[in-house]
Nucleic acid binder design. Structure first.
Length: 816
RNA sequence: GCCCGGGUGGCGGAAUCGGUAGACGCAACGGACUUAAAAUCCGUUAUCCGAAAGGGUGUGCGGGUUCAAGUCCCGCCCCGGGCACCA
């Protein structure tokens, strides 16, 4: 009678063993090949949800697999602890954000430990602690001195009722989430980091990241959005300053029939000052939130400003409009409109009765009516005077040369990427280390006065930062002149903390420097795992910060993450699980019922890691049932006593077959985990092998030896997914060593050899028969045997054979 | 609106380089064991025709390339993610 599988006992005892043996605490050992395996750290929102379990399990599987390959593996964990939810909780429950956050961290850490992840907890870091954020404050002051940060006005969502800045997430259908008031755009001064200084390098180096998924690289390329165009000036009647626009299509210049500026553009403001209708329109344009999706989908509205620009080639007047779809944050905040060859300009021209002028014709000489639709492709210039007949490239160069020679324009590389606004008008974040002095302007807090510590004992009301009401925080002497000055009360975007934490895990206790020599050992991260929703912002900011740290002399490494795995979302009812949507599934109950191994196994088995996973409670049972069968199979086998040795020269067909299956499975799972990250098929292959072991009837010593080899392999290969049960079963199989210190099994190529192979026979591509032939059969013999098949004969009978395709070892296709 | 994914049985998914569509599991159904239930074990299960052998259809929709298409190309539809202040 076998001991039944009790997950809780098994799991707690394995965890105790790992803890006491300090299995996952790693130092810097120069003799060993390091492998830094990292997960995007969690925001401590309260409890673990299924998305967490998925991503952390994926990474733990890779970490444990690499350790079994003999690598020196670091897998750390920490907390992305600043953020809005803590302020919301504080408003709702009256608990200070810090207290709420630390309590969540304690709960989540307990859950992590219960799931058996192989973390080095001695390196745990928490971003809301001054010993962490002091170093990003320090780096900011270094960037300030280098001119890599600057202050400028930029647009935020303004809630006119609560008198506060709203995050995009707090804007629901254009209204403030608490006040329900219509949100407005407002300009306030904010700090920016010059990520655009690195735009070219960030773009170029994507080509040297073979370990990144192609879609992520494409998204980053598009986000950076490098374009080659021309910046050119149009004189404006009655204005001293010309109006500058940027275009990637100078070849369409003669098709300009109007121009448009953003509502925030100085020319619009000037016109509004003397015309109440324009003033009303401009004010109306600002009555919308600042999200790009809103601006791009809203109805395109505009109004003539009553002034004209002078076309720089024709000298004709073109009307100047203000339009809501022109964005102040892109380019110069003004556009030249070519409705004949631009979709948006065309739509706007149709709506407002503006002329459409065709200046590009298809290369093949066909006609195209730009009155029916805009012609967007490159082509040949028409109606463009001296430029007629030129193709895109010659026209581009001719026009660019013309503008450069008369000093009215220049070739320019433009980026869609904008500088990173890091100011947040919120309390629960790292204070921006700046002091404003009437005489000295903005002054960086000197190094010896860092960190600027965020007071933790506060009351959050939801209308502006409580820091503003704390004179002891705000009122400080100017570090330069000593006069009374005021501290910045804005805090950093929380993306600042997550842009360098991966480097800090190497030396979380370093009090003398942001990074020390230990970082040189561990950097870069070998494997980074996290949600696809971070494909652009977090990953791009981290690549930027890594370079800023490099240029500050802190590291030699330019790219922070060598290999990237972007895991799909865990969806519930078709949408991302989030607190805001209230569709979060709590894994705790499942862990209590079935144990951590079952939950881990199900997560890995349910779908491939890169795809989204629609959560369903069913199916977990199946994983549990499998672990029970696994447990019983190993214990029953072990109860049979000692096994013989494998004599490859004297095996029965049944033994050979199981042994072949064992080594095929080792090859498959190694590839599935190591190269493909296809954990679901790895689990399926292990299940198949266990089914084959259970079917083995041969109870002889030789037969049991083959079964033992198979079971040893299954136990090791499943251990990355279900480490607890495997830890115990490894002992059950009589091994004295700890499974975590074992090595991955090797494929015995000779076990894979086959005598016969089944080949499919098709007639006109349809399956009509199968023939079994020796593996080394000649093409001719294979073809002859395929043609002889009775069912195949029925389909080719009386017809002329036109062609026969023979794919050795796979199929024969007879075309009649 | 723009950028990136995805769509295969009742369900999750497999098919890795253009070569047997549906591995593995869930659910369901039938059977064994049991006084009974649970658990466990054995079997069936894309769909239609057929007693069977076998055949027709079938990977979101419409076209195309190919001896051969879930896989490649063109045009759509639907779902998910991102769009710079959610993290």
């Amino acid at each position: 009678m076998s001991t039944p599988y009790n997950p809780e006992t098994v799991e707690l005892s394995a965890q105790k063993f790992w803890d006491e043996a300090k299995c996952f605490e790693v130092g810097e050992d120069a003799d060993k090949e390091k492998y830094y395996c990292l997960t995007m750290f969690p925001y401590p929102s309260g409890k673990l949800h299924m998305g967490h379990v998925r991503v952390f399990t994926i990474n733990d599987v890779i970490a444990r697999y690499q350790r079994l390959q003999g690598k020196h593996v670091l897998q750390p964990m920490g907390w992305d602890a600043f953020g809005m939810p803590a302020e919301n909780a504080a408003i709702q429950r009256g608990i200070p954000p810090a207290k709420w956050t630390y309590s969540n961290i304690d709960d989540m850490r307990r859950q992590f430990k219960r799931l058996g992840y192989g973390y080095d907890w001695t390196r745990e870091l928490t971003t809301c602690k001054p010993e962490y954020y002091r170093w990003e404050q320090w780096l900011f002051t270094r960037m300030f001195k280098k001119g890599l940060v600057y202050r400028k006005n930029s647009i935020v969502n303004w809630d006119p009722v609560d008198q506060t800045v709203l995050a995009n997430e707090q804007v629901i259908d254009g209204r403030g989430w608490r006040s329900d008031a219509l949100v407005e755009r407002r300009e306030i001064p904010q700090w920016f980091m010059k990520i655009t200084d690195y735009a070219d390098e960030l773009l170029q180096e994507l080509d040297n990241l073979p370990g990144w998924p192609e879609p992520v690289k494409i998204m980053q390329r598009n986000w950076i959005g490098r374009s080659e165009g021309v910046e050119l000036s149009f004189d404006v009647k009655g204005e001293d300053e010309p109006l500058t626009v940027y275009t990637t299509r100078p070849d369409t210049l003669m098709g300009v029939t109007y121009m448009a500026v953003a509502a925030e553009h100085p020319l619009a403001s000037k016109a509004a000052a003397s015309n109440p209708e324009i003033a009303a329109f401009v004010a109306d344009c600002k009555k919308t939130d600042a999200q790009e999706a809103t601006l791009e989908t809203m109805e395109k509205k505009g109004m003539p400003l009553g002034i004209s620009a002078i076309h720089p080639l024709s000298g004709e007047e073109v009307p100047l409009w203000v339009a809501n779809f022109v964005l102040m944050s892109y380019g110069t905040g003004a556009i030249m409109a070519v409705p004949g060859h631009d979709a948006r300009d065309w739509e706007f021209a149709k709506k407002h009765g503006l002329p459409i002028q065709q200046v590009i014709a298809p290369v093949d000489g066909s006609t195209f009516d730009t009155d029916e639709a805009p012609y967007l492709d490159h082509g040949v210039l028409v109606n463009s005077g001296q430029y007629d007949g030129l193709d895109f490239e010659s026209a581009f160069n001719a026009i660019a040369d013309f503008f450069e020679s008369n000093g009215r324009g220049r070739r320019k590389v433009n980026y869609r990427l904008r500088d990173w606004g890091v100011s947040r008008q919120r309390y629960w974040g790292a204070p921006i280390p700046i002091i404003y002095c009437d005489d000295c302007d903005a002054v960086a807090v000197p190094e010896d006065q860092l960190p600027v510590v965020l007071p933790e004992d506060v009351e959050v009301k939801g209308t502006g930062s409580p820091l503003k009401d704390m004179p002891e925080f705000v009122n400080v002497p100017c570090p330069e002149c000593g006069k009374a000055a005021k501290r910045e009360t804005d805090t950093f975007d929380t993306f600042v903390e997550s842009s360098w934490y991966f480097a800090r895990y190497a030396c979380p206790d370093s009090n003398d420097a942001m990074l020390d020599e230990r970082a040189a050992y561990w950097a870069p991260v070998d494997q980074y795992t996290g949600g696809i929703e971070h494909a652009i912002l977090h990953l791009l900011y981290s690549r930027f910060f890594q370079r800023v740290m490099r240029d500050e002399g802190l590291t030699d490494v330019s790219e922070p993450f060598t290999n990237l795995l972007t895991q799909g979302m865990v969806l519930k009812d078709g949408a991302k699980m989030s607190k805001a949507k209230g569709n979060v599934v709590d894994p705790q109950a499942l862990i209590e019922t079935y144990g951590a191994d079952t939950v881990r196994l199900f997560m890995m088995f349910a779908s491939p890691p890169e795809q989204s996973l629609e959560w369903s409670d069913e199916g977990v049972q199946g994983s549990y049932r499998f672990l029970k069968r696994f447990w019983t199979a190993v214990r029953d086998h072990a109860a049979g006593g000692p096994v013989g040795t494998i004599d490859t020269g004297a095996m029965t067909d049944e033994q050979k077959e199981l042994r072949r299956k064992t080594h095929q499975t080792i090859a498959k799972i190694s590839d599935d985990i190591g190269r493909r990250h296809s954990f679901n098929t790895a689990v399926a292959a292990a299940m198949e092998l266990l089914n084959a072991i259970n079917k083995l009837t041969d109870q002889s010593e030789a037969g049991r030896a083959v079964a033992r080899e198979a079971l040893d392999a299954v136990v090791i290969m499943l251990s990355p997914m279900v480490p607890h049960i495997c830890h115990t079963l490894w002992q059950t199989l009589g091994h004295e060593t700890a499974l975590v210190d074992e090595r991955w099994p090797e494929v015995d190529e000779s076990a894979l050899e086959l005598d016969q192979v089944e080949v499919v026979v098709q007639v006109n591509g349809k399956l009509r028969g199968r023939v079994t032939v020796p593996v080394d059969v000649s093409k001719d013999a294979l073809q002859a045997q395929a043609l002889a098949d009775a069912n195949v004969q029925r389909f080719i009978d009386g017809k002329a054979i036109r062609k026969v395709i023979v794919v050795p070892g796979r199929l024969v296709n007879i075309v009649v």
